[in-house]
Every structure is written in structure tokens, then in C-alpha cells.
Design a protein around this nucleic acid. Sequence first.
DNA 1: GGGCACATGTAAGCTGTTACATGATTAA
DNA 2: TTAATCATGTAACAGCTTACATGTGCCC
Lengths: 189, 189
Amino acid sequence: MRKNQTETAVLGALSVEPMTGYALRVTIRDVLGHFWSESFGQIYPALAELERRGRVKRRGSSRPGSSTFALTGSGRARLKELLAQPVHASPPRNGLMLRLFFGRQLGAEACRSLVLEARHDAARRLKKYEAIREELELDDDHAKDRPFWLLTVSAGEHTARAAITWADETIAALDEIGPSIDAPKQRRR
Amino acid sequence: MRKNQTETAVLGALSVEPMTGYALRVTIRDVLGHFWSESFGQIYPALAELERRGRVKRRGSSRPGSSTFALTGSGRARLKELLAQPVHASPPRNGLMLRLFFGRQLGAEACRSLVLEARHDAARRLKKYEAIREELELDDDHAKDRPFWLLTVSAGEHTARAAITWADETIAALDEIGPSIDAPKQRRR
DNA sequence: GGGCACATGTAAGCTGTTACATGATTAA
DNA sequence: TTAATCATGTAACAGCTTACATGTGCCC
């Protein structure tokens, strides 16, 4: 754990191209957003700390009151070191699964709604991944990074498709178990 | 967010059957573990708070120094209320994807290892889900809960299978991009 | 001149993890 | 008898989120 996590994301983003702290916020949100998030309150402190240690260098302002940060040699080395560290799986906390697991208390109908919603979300994500894929094909600036970026897009696509299949199966299953548990009192009134 | 999360998990577990705080720890780890986690440091305080509010009742000790907690009527109502609240998606933090995204810095070979490891993990999880499924088929005590529990097992299976497929594709892709970027200096020595 | 996007930070507060402290019971 | 498991808690700390404070430049 440690705040290595933030450090890695910040150094990584700067390894693609130098940018301001603000641009870092936006990049992490828009580009890494499918699998990563940083609370913005951490980015500036992390950047300051990295500067203090000589991992990044603050370059003159593109305009007053702003500065662009670039990786130093030591910063690039540190990034490689961080990336080589073992992946620390964050403990799972899936609110949807928690609700389904206690679905007997929640009721089959409410479960159905939740699953439908999850299906919509997954479908929306899938479309987005396809859009990103197309966008990447046209982007010649990052040809060296692209193959790696596509791996993460592919992971998103696989996950989203699995979620859709699961949701469809689950809705069918809920239709079967639903009536018998949820509304036993008004069967054929 | 709020500690509603812990409250929901604790009340939910107690809705299945009354148990001690210790059993709660074990149950949450072993039964909900596929999609949920609670830090144990929170369980006892949450339990104390729930007792104070009359959501759970502490029943005589099964043995000295221990007490069994059971849901009260108000506790069951509270659980339903909590389950009906919108799912709050926790911000994603996938360390594997972060490493792959910056795979150019890490190197294709190291990426390959990470993906292989992920494949092993997914295969192991898949086997575990199948074991849980079989175990559930034999368990007559929780017939009413079972259909809902199976939904979460199914989700795990779909996710794990998707991860395996993705990993296989990804390893193939890395084999293609790997050599040309990673070891250009010693091509055909 | 008004609003929006760019830009940099700080502080309070909540959440969650980890390690510790303590003791009873049971099985080898 | 000693190790493992059952059992209940507390305290310190690390990490993250949210809201706030402040200011510039650009476009309509």
C-alpha cells in the first residue's frame, strides 16, 4: 500500500509526457479512469514530495502561475522500481454483490432492478472502450505505448462483456425464483 | 459511503443466523470474501453501536466470555433500508492494469509474468467457485438464501473465465510486441 | 464583464488497517 | 503443557475524500 500508489500513477503519467498538476488530474481521471483513480487532494502533495526528492523537475511556466513537471532520470528509475513491485490487490467491496447475496431480505424485484442497472452500466462501458480503441488507432503520437494501452482496453471489454452475459442469465434466474419467494400471499387472487 | 457499509455487512450476516463477533469475522472473510471485506477492527465497534441502537440483541453466552448477537425487528428493518440504498461504486484501483498501462517502462517480459500470474489467480478462483457451488447444492439449511448466493457465485465464475480468456489473448499479444521493443540490441547475435 | 476552463494548493474529517493486549477453552 | 482456536476489544496511524480558498487567462 503506502502512498506508493499515488506516486506510481503520477510518475507513470509523467513518463508519457510532461504536464502540469492540473493536466495530471484530468489525465488520471480521463485516461486511467477505467481502472484507476486518484483523489485530487493527493496529487499536489505527491508532486511536491517528488520534486523534493528530485524525481521530477519543475519547468518554467507555460503561463504565469503554472508549471510543467517532467520526469528526471532518477524519477524514471523510481517508476521502474515501483512498477516492478508486487501487485497489491485491494480488498474487494462490491456493493451489488452484497445486495444480491442478501437478496432474500431485499426482495427479488429490487434485485432485478439492480442487475438491470448493472447491465446498462456494462453496456455503456463496452461502447466507451470501443470508442477508445478507435481513437487509439488514429493516435500516432504514442505508437510505442499503444500496444500496452490496448491491453487494458481489452481487459475492460472482456470484463464488460462478461458482466452483460452474467446479467442476462441472472435476470432469467430471478424471474424464476422471484414470484415464489417475493409474493406468495397473492398468488392467483 | 459512511460506515453504512460495515453496518450492512454485519446486519446481513446476522440475518442468515445469529452468531458471535468472532464468527462474524470468520464468516465475512470466508463467505463474503469473494466480493467483500471488512477490517476486523471495525466489526466490534459496529456491533456495539448496533446494540446501542437496538438493532441487535446480545444473547447469553454460549460459553463464558462470549455472546451471540441476533437481529431484532428494528435490525431487520434497518437492513432492508440499507440494502435498498443505491449502490455506491468504489473508485477502481487495479494495480495490474496500472502496470500494464505503463508496460513500456516496465518491459514486455515483466508484463508477461504479471499476466500469467493473473491467469493462475483467475483459474484458482474459478475452481473455488465451482467447489462453493457444489457445497451449496448439498446445504439444505439455507434453501431460501441459496438462489441468491448462487447469483454471486455465478458472477465470480463469469468474471474469472473472462479474466482467463483475456490473459491468454494478452500473452499472445505480448509475445508479438515484446521482442521488438524490449530487446532490440541483441536481435540475432 | 461574466462565466468557464486552467491552475495550485490546504485542511478537516472520515474510513480503514494494523498491531497490540488479554484471556478462555480445546486438542495433541 | 503447550499450541491452536475461540473470543473481545482498543489505539495509533495511514490513506483518502471533500470542501474550501485563491487566482489567471480566454472567449463570448
